[in-house]
Design a protein around this nucleic acid. Structure first.
Lengths: 213, 213
DNA sequence: CTGGATCCCTCACGATACTG
DNA sequence: CAGTATCGTGAGGGATCCAG
């Protein structure tokens, strides 16, 4: 049984054949942050059925977008990662994320925030020109999702997990989006209790300037 | 009944909620070329069921990506066009199209080529720096799809339809992709009979340089 | 415990017919 | 022309189970 496809000899149609199916782009989003095992992907995409995840991974691998590697002993575990071709989707994922964020209102009651999505949000909103020559680090906590962001002389690195010696730790909720969109100033966010800070509070303004929707 | 969504407070997930469903991106592709009526969209997407087209148009309108306008008399007909927000997808559609084109092999027997997809292919592969200060025009015929391309002092305009006074008319098939990808030189394409020209044949090489996968 | 496979159910999609 | 109506099919969703 051949895969369903759009039947058009067109780059966009072919791209949609490859990564246009449900969940595919979110799998790629998480793999852009780091290579992952099957179970890690499940954790980052709690609502994906395992059979769908399994099917997507198979198809994406067959299409040359991701790779499946079995680690050497003693782990013996399976790791999925992007191929070079798949990794070339990064600017597209970033641009789509920025585009979508512009019309994203308040989170619905059972919306979740995953660490990987936060990392991508940081990477895609980073303003290199604003951050030129800047050096600073933040830890960002949104509910259970904890990530960190470092800028070293204008160069960005960001990943999931804590950063105990961060210059500023920001504990926040959805308001972080309003802050990054400029709908809220740092002062307003602090006053309204939308953020809890630990460290150098002046760096909250810097943060809002460097990461911009 | 609420729309199915990914349940993640994430720009990419939200974008996928808006334009990630089947056919949505192809509808947007065609609307990027020009505003269209329901029947025009059907013509450009022959395999889309009308109820799906109808559902997509409704949802995209509700989400602020497209607009539905009823033309004043005597037409009284309905026209769909992109909103400003929807139009902002253009660079993303172009980038995805280029990405997909890289892994697009030979067309399958019943693959079709539509005029709109060709126009988008031209726009997304246009190399402004190569074309700087250039002035030339082409008519491109791929089966029933006929489009034209004009470059006026480096500025590109392209649309569906003929261009009787084009500097060069190119009648071709899938080989146009190989030509644009550099897998085939203009001479080889001519020699192998992949293209039929009418006009200034030297402009075929120019074409292959200016439109590059 | 990881990495899936399997089952069942539902609903979105696909094909076609039909209407204002 | 611009859709709606109907109906069959298959992909997606959810739970459970199994092998290494």
């Amino acid at each position: 049984m051949a895969k369903r496809n759009y039947g058009q000899f067109c780059g966009l149609a072919h791209a949609a054949d490859l990564v246009g199916e449900r969940w595919a782009l979110l799998i790629i989003r998480d793999l852009l942050v780091s290579a992952k095992r099957f179970t890690d992907l499940r954790r980052g995409l709690p609502r994906i059925p395992t059979n769908v995840l399994s099917a997507r991974l198979k198809q994406l691998e067959a299409d040359g977008v991701i790779e499946r590697r079995v680690l050497p002993r003693p782990e013996g575990s399976v790791v999925y990662s992007l191929t070079d071709y798949g990794h070339d989707l990064e600017p597209i994922v970033h641009a789509l994320g920025r585009w979508g964020a512009r019309s994203m209102g308040e989170p619905k009651p059972d919306d979740i925030v995953t660490p990987d999505s936060l990392v991508i949000a940081m990477r895609s909103t980073f303003q290199p020109d604003v951050a030129a020559a800047l050096t600073a680090s933040w830890e960002l906590r949104a509910g259970p999702a904890v990530i960190h962001v470092k800028i070293d002389e204008g160069k960005l690195t960001t990943d999931v997990g804590e950063l105990p010696d961060a210059d500023l730790t920001i504990e926040t909720g959805p308001a972080i989006k309003a802050l990054m969109a400029g709908e809220l100033t740092a002062e307003q966010a602090i006053e309204a209790g939308h953020v809890r800070l630990e460290g150098n509070p002046a760096l909250l303004t810097t943060f809002a300037e460097v990461f911009r929707i």
